[in-house]
Simulated scan of single mutants.
Amino acid sequence: MNFLTLAVLIALTYLIQRIVLMHALDGLTYDMKSERRTVEPDEPFHLVSTIENNKRMPVFFLHLNETVPAEIRLGENEKGIDFRIMKAYGTEPLASMQQVMYIMPRQKAVRRTEVSIAKRGRYILRGATLTAGDLLGIDSRSFQQPLAREIVVFPRRTDISRVKQAYGGYLGDISVRRFIMPDPIDTIGFREYTGTEPQRDISWRETLRRGRLMVKQYDYTAEMRAALIVDISGASHEEAEQIFSVTRSIADSLEEKHIQFSFVTNAWILSSSSVFGYVPDGTGPVHLNAVLECLGRACYEVTQDTGKMLRDTLKGRNDGRSYIYISADSSRKKDILQYYEAEAGQKLFKVDCTKEVRL
């Protein structure tokens, strides 16, 4: 081989190197998502990474560096992934999952990675950096694909046997009261106005027909309802986690008994739609999942004080439902609770997550 031939080969190799490197990232797309948006603590699930090469040229060397929450743990059978803890993104600790691959022309590469998360919370998949190299691995080009895909981990279940026992007696009192509370939905007839009924119960059509004031007569409610009031104000981070776990277990118990319940909390909810935690009356898997997702998204910041939350929740709600107030220690707010119980004429069932159950 003479010098000229060698020079031509070197020039061709260099040219091919530059062309491969110049177009290495062309037509390359990336996405990552969780197969499940909500999961239980330590429950295995899969992160699905999809890389598609839409051009006619292969990608000879591709280094994939995915940014994930530092709390993620790889499954025991996951091989070929380099997992490293990174510096925090603001206050959010992050990690990277790195791997190297080769992608053929017009190929879609899909990788399912089994992971789990032990701690309650809302987590975000932040995307990835893709680095493509030339034929000889001398030079490379990179691009970042930002993402913001959420994963919500529910609170852990905890033992609430003492709460169930005490709440059983409390429900007994409510069960008696529910048969003396009229249900404003089911009208079974009319009777003469005595002056003690609210004006909204007057039936003007029946009054005109009979020539005297008549009011609607309601049926008696036979459906048990509850309201969960979750107060984290003044609680430490550890106490707040206990509150969330106890609330989750109570919600599970109410759902098992097919008792309709609403949910409200003054914990800040990490969500794009609203920072306020409220779920109206309901029952069933969808309703329960909405409550558990609020608990999973809750952080330690407080949106309103105890008094305002109780006033807004109890105002005008003399409907015979049971009110379950869950906090770290209700004795810290004894005066506030007694004031709003007296004002609303409602007795709260108090659950202290750091002490014995209080009634």
Rank of each mutant, 00 (worst) to 15 (best):
L6P: 00
T13S: 10
I19S: 06
M22S: 15
D31C: 01
E35I: 03
R37T: 11
V39N: 07
E40S: 11
P44C: 03
L47V: 14
S49L: 05
N53K: 12
N53G: 12
K55P: 00
H63S: 11
V68A: 07
A70S: 13
E71K: 02
I72F: 06
R73H: 03
G75H: 04
E76Y: 14
R84K: 15
I85R: 15
M86Q: 05
K87P: 07
G90S: 02
E92L: 12
E92Y: 08
S96G: 11
M97Q: 09
Q98T: 10
R111N: 04
E114T: 10
E114P: 01
S116I: 01
S116T: 10
Y123W: 02
I124S: 11
G127Q: 07
G127Y: 05
T129D: 00
D139P: 11
R141Q: 03
F143M: 14
F154S: 09
T158N: 08
S161Q: 12
K164H: 10
L171M: 13
G172N: 13
F179L: 14
M181D: 08
R191Q: 11
E192C: 02
Y193T: 01
T196F: 13
R200C: 04
E206V: 08
T207R: 10
L208C: 05
D219K: 15
Y220P: 04
Y220V: 07
E223P: 00
M224H: 08
R225I: 02
I229V: 08
V230Y: 09
S236I: 00
A240Y: 12
E241Q: 09
T247Q: 03
T247Y: 06
E256N: 10
Q260F: 05
N266A: 06
W268I: 00
G277Q: 11
V279H: 04
E293G: 14
C294L: 05
K308H: 09
L314M: 07
R317K: 06
I324F: 04
Y325I: 02
S331K: 14
Y340C: 02
F349E: 09
C353G: 10
K355P: 01
R358E: 01
L359H: 14
